[in-house]
Amino acid sequence: MNLPDEGILRRLIAFFAALGIGIAAYIAIAEAGGDAPACIVGSGGCKTVAESSYSHLAGVNIAVFGVVGYALLLASSFFANDAARFGGFLISLSGFGYSVFLTYLEIFKIEAICQWCVGSAIVMTILLLLNATRLIGYAGEEEGLSRAG
């Protein structure tokens, strides 16, 4: 199978990780300021989700974990070695799994949808696909054999 060059995958991972940092940081900053993230089409879903107990884990807003996860994914795109490939895959897999769980909570427990959370879940899904492709295509290659991003 003809996979994209690892350099292209790394650039795409960097782009989507930066996008994810933006989304998660916005949610975290809005919540820290005492407000809910503004829903673009005006529904109250973001406020309901932000005010639910599920928005925090061990007292920390889950968006903060999102910022950290995306930042690690961004960092993984800077290196062309197996640690970065496997680490990136594991982080995006964890992020994707947690996004699935949060989407379940939004639909069935909180009964409200936050567009920013959905946006983050989509970005994390894309990142998982990119990191999985990168790992499958380039695992085992020595550092520097693939073109740097």
Partner: peptide
């Protein structure tokens, strides 16, 4: 170019 097929197989199994 595959530098280390064994390592590659191990990583994919772990993944």
């Amino acid at each position: 170019m595959r530098a280390d097929p064994e390592r590659r197989a191990r990583l994919l199994q772990m993944a």
